[in-house]
């Protein structure tokens, strides 16, 4: 039975999978789909010989990629129109940003919600404009709503009533309860304008955001896809700018994200052979991270339950101090038992 490493090998060495038999292809496709990387795999295999039944699955995925890309860019355009009266910068984040900026990382990437970053002072106006343009709240629960507004790095998620697409409006890139305090004003000040008038983060800040999201926030679910983003971004940025490693070091230090970025670069190096742009200082815990990140099987199931639970608990500890976490879980637990 395969695991996430097989997907990583397929992505880094597409020529190697052309030799797989039907059983191995079946498992690879399921694992890649579960890791949200089948779109990427499909693009990488586009011009290579693939046995017919697998080839037709990948051809379908490429069609879906086109639709997904078009929908994501259209959603960004809708947000731009809705926010035309907002004077500040609207910064696209994650997948939509890669797509809008035409980066290699957008190749076959699945894009779900639209994520944008605006200045915290502008939140009220942005929220009002979006509501006026047809977005509405997803979470009607007053505790969740209040929690988001007090402690999170984003507004509670909104969904567009007609297009059924979600938008996450960020004012910084980590929850306010997390230890690192990224410099949100610097993120916005350094953002690059696109021809549409929308913005994307500077190259170094893109890496900082991806690393913060992966290492300093969540439970590493979707970790492989996040690391693949970083791999593609790093390869492209280094090729375009020889001074990029130093620039990244400066920005990571500014945002207090030196450790997460270093960890992310190491994991990328181990998993995808990403060029080591910083000196590699191996850590014993890397193995545990990789064990978590590759916890998928050939049926697309999540495996290694204990490891996953460990990282889940860690994600909560990262987000808030223990006393606050206890209060939060108590409230959530009581609500769960009321309903």
């Amino acid at each position: 039975m395969i695991d996430g490493w097989s997907v990583a090998r397929a992505l880094t060495d597409p020529a190697s999978v052309t030799r797989l038999d039907a059983g191995a292809w079946t498992q690879l496709l399921s694992a890649a789909r579960a890791a949200s990387l089948i779109g990427t795999l499909a693009e990488l295999m586009a011009d290579r010989p693939v046995p017919y039944p697998a080839a037709r699955v990948l051809a379908d995925v490429r069609l879906s990629n086109q639709t997904g890309l078009r929908q994501a860019l259209w959603e960004a355009e809708c947000a731009r129109l809705a926010l035309a009266d907002y004077a500040g910068k609207v910064v696209l984040l994650k997948g939509t940003a890669f797509a809008a900026a035409g980066l290699d990382a957008a190749q076959g990437r699945s894009i779900g919600d639209l994520d944008i970053l605006v200045a915290r002072e502008g939140l009220d106006q942005v929220e009002a404009l979006l509501l006026k343009a047809g977005w509405e709240w997803v979470k009607p629960d007053p505790y969740d709503d209040a929690y988001y507004r007090q402690w999170m790095h984003e507004l509670p998620p909104m969904i567009h009533a007609e297009r059924d697409r979600m938008i996450d409006v960020h004012h910084t890139i980590l929850p306010l309860t997390a230890r690192p305090k990224p410099d949100a004003a610097a993120l916005i000040a350094d953002a690059r304008a696109l021809p549409s008038g929308l913005h994307v983060l500077s190259p170094a800040d893109m890496i900082c955001h991806a690393a913060a999201h992966l290492i300093a926030d969540g439970d590493l679910s979707g970790g492989m896809r996040n690391l693949w983003d970083i791999d593609r971004l790093v390869r492209q940025f280094v090729a375009e700018d020889a001074g990029f490693p130093d620039r990244l070091a400066e920005r990571a230090a500014l945002h207090g994200l030196g450790e997460p970025v270093e960890r992310a670069l190491r994991l990328c190096y181990r998993l995808f052979g990403t060029p080591a742009i910083w000196p590699i200082r191996p850590a014993v815990s890397d193995a545990l991270y990789l064990r978590r990140i590759t916890a998928i099987d050939g049926w697309g199931r999540k495996t290694r339950k204990l490891t996953r639970q460990g990282f889940y608990i860690r994600s909560h500890l990262l987000r808030m101090p223990p006393a606050m976490l206890a209060r939060h879980l108590w409230t959530k637990w009581r609500k769960g038992h009321r309903g």
Binding site: A22, G23, T26, L29, P51, P53, A54
Partner: peptide, 12 residues
């Protein structure tokens, strides 16, 4: 036949 499927379904 055990061919590469279009879809995998899990009853778990």
């Amino acid at each position: 036949d055990e061919v590469v499927p279009d879809f995998t379904v899990r009853l778990q």
